[in-house]
Structure formats: C-alpha cells, structure tokens
Simulated assay, not measured.
Amino acid sequence: MADAFTQVYIHLVFAPRRREALIRPEWEVRLHQYITGIVQERGHKLLAIGGMPDHIHIFIGQKLSEALPDLVREIKNASNDFVKKERLSPFKFDWQNGYGAFSHSRSQMDAVCKYILNQKEHHRKRTFKEEFLKLCEDFGIETGRKEFFSWFE
C-alpha cells in the first residue's frame, strides 16, 4: 500500500467538570506543557494551546493513524492524572464529558493560533458559552439535539 499524505488541522475545546474555573494561572503553563507532550508523543503536531480557568483550546495537526476520540480521551485522562498527582488543584479536578472539534484549512492556521493564544483578551467580550455556541453555529453544528457542557453562569 502506498503512503498516505494528509493535512488535517483540528481545533479542540473542552472544560473541567461542571465548568468550574479550576485551571489556575499559577499552574496553567505546566498543564499546557504536559498536554503538549501528550500530543507530540502520539505523533501529532501541537500548533497552539490556550484557554481560561474554565476551558481549554488545543489546535493540532492531526496524524490520522489515531482516531480523534482516542486522542482526546488520552489528553483528558493523562492530564487529569497529572493535575491530581502534582496536587495542582486543591479541588477535585476532572474534565467534563464531551468536547468540541472543529476542522480548519491551512489558510486559517495563523488566525486560529492567534485566537487561541489571545483567549484572555477574547473573553473580556464573550463568555465561554457564547464562544462555544458561536463556533458551533459557524461550523453548522446543530446544537438543539446535542448534550453540551453543563452551563453554570
């Protein structure tokens, strides 16, 4: 069989359970570095990572030999274990079930990276719920029938 040549860019979004603001600025960089390691060890390319205390964005160049749900499961499980093992949070830390995954073209890479890296500024104007629902709308994802994150406001 001939080699496969692919170029797939995926923007992932997920949140701690109950959408609690548990990702503290004091250890956010360590968490991002740890997740970067997970992504890279599995052969994917980390393009950008950022977020807020109540959610995270990860932009990757996906290696198609691993199914996206398997990668997300590994990121969540391993990073959850890392937070617990390192005792980063004094509160019970778990990721919520579910996630958003949005595909982008190569021409959108710079804009998506800037968007993810500027989350703190972006969220001065828009809540996570508004942001996530807008992403779904922009990508034509019907939200009425799907179970989404627990929206506590």
Rank of each mutant, 00 (worst) to 15 (best):
W151E: 03
K120C: 04
D110N: 10
G61H: 14
G100D: 01
M1D: 13
D110H: 07
D138Y: 14
S150E: 13
E142R: 13
M109I: 15
A4E: 15
L47K: 07
F82H: 03
L117M: 12
V83Q: 00
L88V: 02
K146V: 14
S107G: 03
I58Q: 04
E142M: 08
E26N: 05
M1C: 14
G61E: 14
S105V: 07
E26Y: 04
Y34G: 07
A111M: 12
S65P: 07
E74T: 04
E147C: 02
P90E: 00
E131P: 04
K129S: 12
T143C: 14
R18I: 11
Q62H: 09
E121R: 08
F91V: 05
E142N: 11
A111C: 09
R87M: 06
F128V: 08
R42W: 11
F5Y: 14
H57C: 04
D94H: 05
K114G: 06
F91I: 05
L117N: 09
Y115F: 12
H32D: 13
I116N: 05
R24D: 15
G37Y: 11
H11Y: 07
F93D: 00
I38L: 12
Q33G: 13
E28H: 05
A101K: 05
E74H: 04
E137C: 14
I56T: 09
K120A: 13
D138T: 14
H122V: 14
P90Y: 01
E153P: 09
T127C: 09
V112N: 06
R73Y: 04
I49G: 05
E153H: 10
S79R: 02
T143N: 11
R126L: 15
W95V: 00
S103L: 06
T36P: 01
P25R: 10
Y34C: 06
A67N: 13
K84I: 07
I23R: 03
A15H: 10
F148I: 15
Q96F: 03
